[in-house]
Structures are given as C-alpha cells and as structure tokens.
C-alpha cells in the first residue's frame, strides 16, 4: 500500500457523481453525527461559560469526573496487558481451542451492555454465587468501585486485542525468532522487537478502550448503585443532573466527556497520519 494509490488516481475522475457522493456522505455525517454533537455543545453553552464552570465545579460532578478517570486508569492498563498477552498467544502459537479463545474474547462486543452489568450482579450481588462469601468477609464489590471496574473491564475487553491482532498476524514472527536465535531473552524480544512493530496499532486500541471506558453507561448503571458523590460516574452523573431539571449542567458535563472523546479521536487521527508517513 502506498500513499500514491489513494492520492493520485482516484482524483482524476471528478464529475458530478463524485460530488454527489461527497455531498451525500457529508449529509449523512452531518445529520447523524455532527448535529447531535453540536447540540450537546449548544445546550452546554446556553447559559454561557459561567454556567459551564458552575456545573463542573459542583462537588458531585467533580467526584464523578475523578471516579471516571480512576476507573479508566485501572481498566485501560489491565485490558492493555491482557490484550497484548492474548494477541501474542493467538498470533504466535498454534494450540487447540485457539479459535474458541478468540471467539470468547470477542463475545463482550456482541453482548448488550445491560447484560455486561447483570453478569457481575449475578456473581457478586448479595444473591449471587459469591454473594454470601463476600458478605461474610465484608467485601463490597457491586455498588462500589470494584463493580464499576469489573463492568468496564468486561465492556472494553476486546478493544486492544482487536487493534493489534491483525497486525501481529500479518507481520509474522520471523523477526522475533531471529532475535531469540541470537539469544535474547523472551521479555527483551517482546520489548525491543514485538512492541515497536505494533506500537501505533496498540496505541489506537488503547485510545479506543479508554474512550469506551469513560463513556460506558448501560453496564455501569446496573452495578453502580447511583450514590451521588460516591459511585456515580460521569455518564451516570449526566443522567442524574438531566433528571434534576438541570439540562444545561447535564450537557456541560456531557460536553466535557465529548471533548475528551474528541481529543481521543484527534490523537487517533494524528497517529494514523504518523503511521502512514512512517511507511
């Protein structure tokens, strides 16, 4: 794949059909994507910047922001390490059940977020499998930080793996084997050979994982308990303030979250650009 392919040839056949296609595509993007986003910002700013500032300064909002960042800070590294290890196993080794493992890892993508929350309640709720044992040990999992983390882990589970697996499979293991033959220990091979090769794909996966971790609503709603200032994450706080007749404050927090998402997307686009240039 070279830049020339997509740069040059396609351009030489303009004509009204091309512009119609561009127009239609932009219309799709406008109606489906841009307008909802514009609305979030318009509503957030409906009482000016002071309204935004006071909405974000609210102690419950602050606690929601902190909690969301904390949850993301735990889930993203865990799923990154897990995803790396799993991708490495699947790309480099043949073992029975490899296909099954891949299917299982992808399962969370096809599961309703509501179910993703429900499963943890079924496990760790008072009436769940481990509920009585946890109750005796006085460990709170659902309706506390661990539950939020577990639900988010489940939802963002396959993102890193999906981002790096195709690349690792395509690249093959020749370089790694060469390094091993030369006597490098496995972890050094991983650090100096494998990792640099996949770093952009990995970063993309991490960014998407992070965006989803911060924005998850359905799964988190089931396990949060919605205690204000304690277990409300940003998406839950948005819903709560919206229901408090404070639409502007809700949209202000939503705008912040959308902004975080946009930064993520921009970082991703920048990375893609970087990758392309490097090739």
């Amino acid at each position: 794949m070279t830049a020339g392919v997509q740069g040059g040839v396609g351009l030489r056949a303009p004509g009204w059909e091309r512009w119609l296609a561009i127009g239609l595509a932009l219309l799709v993007l406008l109606v489906l994507l841009v307008l909802p986003l514009a609305l979030v910002f318009a509503e957030a700013l409906s009482r000016g910047w002071a309204g935004v500032a006071s909405a974000l300064a609210d102690p419950d909002a602050q606690s929601a922001i902190r909690l969301t960042l904390l949850v993301a800070a735990i889930t993203v590294p865990v799923n990154t390490l897990g995803g790396l290890a799993a991708a490495w196993c699947i790309a480099r080794f043949r073992f029975p059940g490899r296909g099954l493992l891949l299917t299982i890892i992808e399962l969370p993508l096809t599961i309703s977020p509501v179910i993703s929350g429900l499963v943890w309640v079924l496990l760790f709720g008072r009436n769940g499998w481990f509920g009585p044992a946890l109750g005796r040990a006085d460990i709170q999992i659902v309706f506390a930080l661990p539950g939020l983390v577990l639900a988010t882990l489940f939802v963002t589970f396959p993102f890193v793996l999906r981002a790096i697996l195709p690349l690792m499979q395509a690249q093959g293991s020749a370089e790694e084997q060469a390094a091993i033959t030369l006597g490098a220990p496995a972890w050094r091979v991983f650090l100096h050979v494998t990792l640099p090769n996949i770093r952009f794909a990995l970063l993309q996966g991490v960014l998407l994982c992070n965006a989803r971790a911060m924005g998850e609503f359905g799964a988190v709603a089931v396990v949060s308990g919605r205690i204000r200032g304690l277990t409300n994450t940003m998406p839950l706080h948005i819903e709560a303030t919206y229901n408090d007749y404070q639409a502007q404050a809700a949209f202000a927090v939503a705008a912040l979250l959308a902004l975080l998402a946009l930064v993520t997307l921009a970082a991703r686009a920048g990375l893609e650009w970087g990758t392309r240039r490097e090739r």
Partner: peptide, 16 residues
C-alpha cells in the same frame, strides 16, 4: 441515591 423505586429496591437486595 435516586432511581426508579423498583430498581432501587433491587439494588438494595443485591447488596447496595
């Protein structure tokens, strides 16, 4: 914590 009354009862039953 606020929510639908039934949902809240469930949460308490589940260990909230």
């Amino acid at each position: 914590s606020h929510g639908g009354s039934g949902a809240q009862a469930r949460a308490v039953l589940d260990g909230l």
